[in-house]
């Protein structure tokens, strides 16, 4: 187990270095970022001074190695736009993004599993067709468009939910202010529903299809027939026998889904004015605030790698035939 954990951590380090290198090179390939930090009336001398101050006058490999050296010590540099620790800026926005992603995950799981089961149990009927058509629609619809439609119809037209904004829950929790976190919760849920649904629709649809096909495969197996022949109720057959065995591919997918949902926040946070990391990264890329982008990339990569690790461990727990090595 320990050997496995150490090898995965080493793999994760390689992934993080590779990801930051690609990000670094991509941001530099699109020209000298200095020009975004000078006035349009700046002279060549002033531009050179700013370039030197920002460290962009150094060779690329020196800049990158300097970043890596800092990363090892937990320092990803100072944001060029916020003029403070880039990692602090990212971590400050992270709770809002985590709230959104967890809620999206909850929506996806809560609806995908029952819908998939219902579709599988009613295979070939109108119910199955309807659910699969909705799933197809959910996978085809762009989140940007869906977000704006929700704003117009649910927020503006029906006034059921707030159009944009955010009420924090995790942030006061982290500060130990339980009372504020609890009192914020009802309002926070109102603000969360539309953006979380927008992000989750694709995952919800994909997972509903996955659950359905997985259930169909399991339902046709001998042990299910045996369970039925023993006279068990259909609910027990489905939940205790079939679903438990159909669970494996779903767990794998759900683990990766969190990372996928995390990557989906960029657009949705912009549409719903959600003050999270996604929007921060979007602005940082436009401003080519390289330390800030790199910090966010490191955080996202860490989350993704950790989740993969958790899924692997969970997989072994769910299926004793799987061994970690």
């Amino acid at each position: 187990m320990w050997q496995y954990a150490i090898s995965r951590i080493l793999q994760a380090s390689v992934v993080i270095v590779a990801v930051t290198l690609i990000t670094f090179l991509t941001l530099h390939m699109s020209g000298d970022p200095t020009y975004l930090y000078v006035s349009e009336r700046a002279s060549e001398r002033e531009i050179a001074q700013v370039r030197e101050r920002l460290g962009f006058d150094r060779p690329l490999h020196v800049q990158y190695l300097s970043f890596l050296g800092g990363l090892v010590q937990g320092d990803t540099g100072r944001s060029l736009t916020y003029r403070t620790s880039a990692m602090d800026v990212v971590l400050e926005r992270l709770p809002a993004t985590i709230e959104l992603t967890i809620m999206a995950m909850l929506i996806a799981v809560t609806f995908a599993i029952p819908l998939g089961i219902v579709a599988a149990l009613n295979r070939g009927t109108a119910i199955d067709g309807g659910i699969m058509a909705l799933a197809m629609f959910g996978q085809s619809i762009p989140s940007f468009w869906l977000g704006i439609m929700l704003i117009l119809f649910v927020g503006l037209g029906l006034s059921w939910l707030p159009i944009s904004g955010h009420v924090p829950v995790i942030e006061p929790l982290l500060k130990g202010d339980l009372e504020r976190a609890w009192s914020n919760l009802p309002n926070a849920l109102r603000y969360l529903i539309m953006p979380a649904f927008t992000i989750s629709l694709f995952s919800l649809s994909r997972n509903a299809r996955l659950v359905r096909s997985s259930m169909l495969e399991v339902l046709s197996q001998d042990f299910v027939r045996t369970a039925r022949s023993k006279g068990l109720k259909e609910r027990a057959v489905v939940i205790r026998h079939a679903l438990r065995n159909a669970w494996m591919p779903v767990v794998t997918m759900l683990g990766l889904e969190f990372g996928f949902l995390l990557s989906g926040v960029v657009v949705v946070e912009t549409v719903f004015s959600w003050p999270g990391v996604g929007r921060l990264v979007f602005n940082a890329i436009n401003q080519r605030d390289i330390p800030l982008v790199q910090s966010a990339v490191v955080v996202f990569a860490l989350v993704f790698v950790t989740l993969n690790l958790v899924v692997d461990v969970l997989y072994a727990r769910l299926d004793p035939r799987v061994r970690l090595s």
């Binding site: 704006i148 704003i151 117009l152 927020g155 503006l156 006034s159 707030p162 159009i163 944009s164 904004g165 912009t270 549409v271 719903f272 004015s273 003050p275 929007r279």
Partner: peptide, 18 residues
């Protein structure tokens, strides 16, 4: 001073009276 990056969202908030 609210930050609303998307133009459509800004317009919706305005028309909703927020």
């Amino acid at each position: 001073w609210r930050v609303i990056p998307e133009a459509s969202t800004r317009a919706a908030e305005l028309m909703d009276g927020n």
